[in-house]
Amino acid sequence: MAERLLDVTGLTTTFRTGKKTSVTAVNNVTFSLDRGEILGLVGESGCGKSVTSLSIMGLFEDTAGKVASGSIVFDGEDLTKLTTKQMRSIRGKRISMIFQNPMSSLNSCMRVEAQLIEAIRLHNDVSKSEARQRASKMLSAVGIPDPEQTLRSYPHQLSGGMSQRVMIAMALCCEPEMMIADEPTTALDVTIQAQILELMKDIRSRNNTSILLITHDLGVVAEMCSRALVMYAGRIVEEASVEELFASPIHPYTVGLIASVPKLGSGVTSLPSIPGSVPDLSAMPQGCKFAPRCKYAQAVCRQTEPELAPVPGGNGRKCRCHLFGKEEGKEAQA
């Protein structure tokens, strides 16, 4: 039995938009992550994936966002209750993060070594030269062929793939228990993408690091994760093991997502897409948020929002739908 590392319960994150108005970007999100697990979080652009990860890290400086309710229990400690200072000692040390755009995520005015040494010395009482040695070791561990040269480089002298490796080295340099990867490969070309994903798998198996992998690429989820959450309009609409999710998606949104991924050799020339677009945060429909785009939608769907409920006989599987997943074996077809 795997050990639980993170328990997010009823997480709701809002952004103030005016004096009295605010939008809810993440609504009542509940999930958990075990040690050594790679959990996928998928959904269309703007559905709240990044905001979920920023909520875990408490990274709301400079924005009008805050965790409005819910708890984020990390290794027995509720992160939402910690002071800024306590939170800082967790960021980068126990939970670290890598981002979508590695080039702009590194400080272009600082050499790679300065940025790595800064990260190491923040959480470890070591001398500069010790930190530098460690930085060099980290760089070779993430597959950078010439660590010394890379250490002396400025970010603009590195390729995208190299930058992301540096970011990963920086995220790993304090041996965190958990890493959040927010679309780590979206900005990279395909071969580099595969290498970075391979590297993350490696890290997981070497250090038993838990990874929350945020992506909108279902292929990445299939490749990397054991379990996945599907998010829509700030809510989790389906949670399932990856095999089940691809074999028998329940929620009409998941069905649409999977149907829109091209399959090799399927002979399909035009891919089905989900009609309509993500509802605006400030003008959410009543009832199920997906109802306006759902071909099965009925009166009940437009009136009340369904709960994220366990699917009968689904072994931890959950779905947020009035119509499907209520009885065993009933699932929407594309």
């Binding site: 400086e61 967790i90 960021r91 981002f99 702009s104 995520s105 400080n107």
Partner: peptide, 28 residues
């Protein structure tokens, strides 16, 4: 500069606001 991605990275490292502002944002 405070809106840039590298500032978020600096914060995600656990760096305090003071250094985020001086060492990262101000330098740029």
């Amino acid at each position: 500069n405070l809106k840039e991605d590298y500032i978020r990275t600096a914060r995600a490292k656990g760096l305090g606001e003071f250094f985020v502002i001086l060492r990262h944002a101000y330098k740029n």
